[in-house]
């Protein structure tokens, strides 16, 4: 079982969270020229590599906040967690 440190609530069990997918995906900015390719990359195309993966989790059975988690997709080691509006870098 994963143990995820919610930046709001502290270390919690995976059972309290639901997964939200790749957090590095950016929605194209509105009110400017957007190509089909930009939309495809936002809606469908994913890197999904082995190794470090920045992803969204929802603390559904806790504070109900969305958070970002950096996790290794082959070892499940969690390197860091942060609030959803914190910078990825």
């Amino acid at each position: 079982m994963l143990h995820i440190k919610c930046p709001h609530c502290g270390m919690r069990s995976q059972n309290e969270f639901s997964y939200g997918g790749d957090a590095s995906v950016k929605r194209p900015k509105l009110n400017q020229e957007i190509s089909d390719q930009d939309w495809d990359n936002f809606v469908y195309n994913r890197k999904s590599l082995r190794g470090k993966h920045l992803e969204l989790w929802h603390h559904l059975s806790g504070c109900r906040q969305w958070i970002k988690v950096e996790r290794d997709t082959s070892t499940h080691e969690i390197f860091r967690t942060m609030k959803a509006n914190e910078d990825n870098s």
């Binding site: 079982m1 639901s18 997918g21 082995r50």
Partner: peptide
């Protein structure tokens, strides 16, 4: 299991 994974082994929940 519900999250991106290359682990080839599962999680109990």
């Amino acid at each position: 299991d519900g999250y991106n994974s290359y682990a080839q082994r599962g999680n109990l929940p």
